[in-house]
Amino acid sequence: MNKLLRILFVLLVAKPIIVFWLGLTVRHRERLPTRGPAIIAGNHNSHLDTVALLSLFPLEEVPNVRPVAAADYFMKPGFMQWFSLNVVGIIPVARRGVAEGIDPLEECYRALERGEILLIFPEGSRGEPEQMAELKSGISYLAKRFPTVPVIPVFMRGLGKSMGKGTFIPIPFFVDVFVGRPFSWTGEKNSFMDRLRDAFAHLQKKVPAQPLE
């Protein structure tokens, strides 16, 4: 991971795209952690989700913020792999790791131990633009192992409309981001996932809907 490249990426690519090309309204930015360890849980509709979340952090904090991403998609050898690892700074997760007898979240544990901030999309994949899919429970293993680490739900609206699955040029639309209240491990997997689901449902209502036909 290259710290300078990561900072330059956020400064020269992420912030200009999100702030000028798209336009961003953030509610409750103060709820974002200024230091790790922490877990940010975002809804997922677009590759821009990671870009938008990265752009919310001050530049000096950026090397400490690690997007968690699917290894089967981003780790195909070649430019994509190099870019994902060195410029975006992803932590690759093997979605089928369990079947091969390894804990896919091992790297995430190490990152939280180092005091880093994880960006995680519990829906797993981007899915239909501007619609939320069922949450996957991987995040609960992280919260269980680190019961004091805060989980901050973040709801983003408009990014799927701007650059949904299958498109690669962001179309300018204003984007709304609502940062929810931090919470942590509830002591049990189902209640934790319910808590997260409720948080997203609540935030979704707070962010004005954008029409999409």
Partner: peptide, 23 residues
Amino acid sequence: SFVAFKEFLTLAPTRRADSKVLL
């Protein structure tokens, strides 16, 4: 004009198929 048009398109309904047209 850019910001105003962007604001208009954010509020108005657009078809997903039309993303290239919007560009």
